[in-house]
Design a protein around this nucleic acid. Structure first.
Lengths: 202, 202
DNA sequence: CCTACCGATCGGTAGG
DNA sequence: CCTACCGATCGGTAGG
């Protein structure tokens, strides 16, 4: 039980931290601000995190992991390349929207991370690009996709989706699922998914 | 001539500032750092800019203006919707790549701007989205494009291109023009540009 | 888990 | 008397 309480405290700290970093920026937020929101004082945070930078890294790394997993799981499942690409993009989009604040903080505040923390995340991002590129290559080989440049296609799809953190509005007209569907459809168009491959999609 | 020298000094300050903000972040860069790179001292900067924030805004605003102009000029020119969209995306991509550091600083450091500075830039971005959406709508009305959701399509295209600031490498295998062409082609695929419209492209 | 406090740093401005 | 700068220093705040 003690572990659960410790984990809960960590989560609460991260919850307020990401909210404040998102609203005011990393340098614009003091540890006293975060402590204040939690009704505690600054040294409390230091019993759970070693530094302000560690807080930042704990906000970003798990979210990048979720993005990687979203693509990787869809790529591994059975189905046509078009089905897997559709699901991969849709799942990835949902992560971006669900973790909008974490993603925004990551892309804005990367420069404040430690070298080690940045290296870990960069490794995850490389794996993301590789998994997506391999899925595109597989579809191209099977004649399901027509892609002039696999590498640029992966970056273009990744960018189209990642960018959603800048424009998504929780009170907007579209739900997570609707946006995920639309971006996944755009992705299939980008790789010129052949009608035969599309027809097979459930 | 005096004006030219003043303008030149401003440009040199901005040149070093954007380089340092890009490498170390806005808060990670001191005005002494910038002055040091120029071989002058900090008060020199204050004869040309009122504050560190004004420096940031002078780095970002003109670049966002260039992005808007890139799309707007292409949209106004004669030609089929597909031609204009192709040129608009390609021109916009070239701005993003040419001003990579400025764009990166803008998206990362937005939170450090003044309310007035941010409002100006947000107005430019709204116009960008409107111009692009109108071009897409026009093409859809003419039967040149098939788009399920114009608004999301504009955001998807904008994101695909903007994102290039995160991955473009000056020493990489592709030139500005090659990347611009590839992203523009992806854009045409995204809106399902009809072969007839494409065939008309020079 | 708090009070109390440090060593260091930084944007901005004074006088000359 | 001004423009264009420098050496030195201030008020205020950050992480720890």
């Amino acid at each position: 039980m003690r572990d659960e309480i410790t984990a809960y405290k960590r989560e609460r700290i991260l919850e307020e931290a990401v909210k404040l970093f998102y609203e005011r920026g990393f340098s614009g937020t003091t540890l006293d601000d975060i402590a204040g929101k939690l009704g505690v004082t600054k040294p409390f945070i230091y019993t759970h995190f070693r530094s302000k930078v560690e807080l930042l890294e704990a906000i970003c790394r798990p979210t990048i992991e979720m993005s990687l997993n979203a693509i990787a799981r869809a790529a591994e499942e059975p189905g046509t390349p078009a089905e897997r690409l559709y699901n991969g993009i849709a799942n990835f989009t949902k992560v971006i929207l669900q973790r909008q604040a974490n993603i925004a903080v990551y892309f804005r505040e990367e420069k404040h991370m430690s070298e080690a923390g940045l290296a870990e995340i960069n490794a995850l991002r490389k794996r993301f690009d590789r998994v997506l590129s391999e899925l595109l290559q597989e579809g191209a080989n099977a004649g399901a996709f027509r892609i002039a440049d696999i590498r640029v296609a992966a970056l273009a799809i990744g960018g189209m989706v990642s960018w959603a953190y800048t424009w998504y509005q929780p009170e907007g007209r579209l739900s997570f699922d609707e946006i995920a569907d639309k971006l996944a459809q755009f992705g299939l168009h980008m790789v010129d998914a052949q009608p035969a491959a599309l027809a097979a999609r459930p």
